[in-house]
Design a protein around this nucleic acid. Sequence first.
DNA 1: AACTCGTGGCG
DNA 2: TCGCCAAGAGT
Length: 288
Amino acid sequence: MSLPALVLDWYRASARDLPWRRPETTPWGVMVSEFMLQQTPVARVEPVWTAWMDRWPVPSALAAAPRADVLRAWGKLGYPRRALRLHEAAAEIARAHGDVVPSDVNALEALPGIGSYTARAIAAFGYGRRCPVVDTNVRRVVARAVHGRGDAGPARTTADLADVDALLPGDDASAAVISAGLMELGAVVCIARGPRCSACPVRSVCAWQAAGRPEYSGPRKPVQAFAGTDRQVRGRLLDVLRDAPGPVERAALDAAWSDAAQRDRCLHSLLVDGLAEQHDDGRFALPA
DNA sequence: AACTCGTGGCG
DNA sequence: TCGCCAAGAGT
């Protein structure tokens, strides 16, 4: 059997039962899940997604909510600008698309927070369309199973898309399932560290396996530092604002980080990003 | 094209 | 312990 056929059968038989994969999930639900899953593990997203969909089941519902509510509901998923972009995208869908998530990749990519991956994921998983989806999992699976390399290396957008496109059959339904299957395979079997090849459904056709699983030798993507960075400081500051029932004095933020210069710079950047605001009395809060 | 943007779990 | 990693996007 071919690689796509093996992936298809395996996915149908043993895909994880994730809430956003259930048949009753709307394209909006898929869109919300894709925003939350950007750079964020499934286990952390699940409970937040469920609460989010109960509260804001359609784009216009989210659009009507204050940003402070949106940021609190986002919780500690990380990269809170995603929450603001989702909020903005929802407003645009309500305003310009009749409260219906677009199914067209170009229309999707025009929305804030939606890039090449997310647009294609919504088209494929939300609408069942044949649309190559390339994320870090898929790139790793293709690098190994198709090209026989231990890992993917730097992204090459056009070539990566063409690789995946070549794997998909012509019909929408099975192509969409295979797209989900490629991601699932990369997420639970063909993982970055310690791939579980003995449990792999495509082992018999895997080029990496056939080549003796040579170690990856190309350039590694640099791991980002975190301790002491602005990212950590912003996280600390936002944590104070999220946990407070209302506006806080500057002193409450001062306690969150000792380096005053860095703290002020980060607070300013949060204001610029629309993740915080300063009231007339000088106190700080999440944006209205 | 390189850099920034959170958070936490795991080997 | 701590480096590595997790369904990217925007600039």
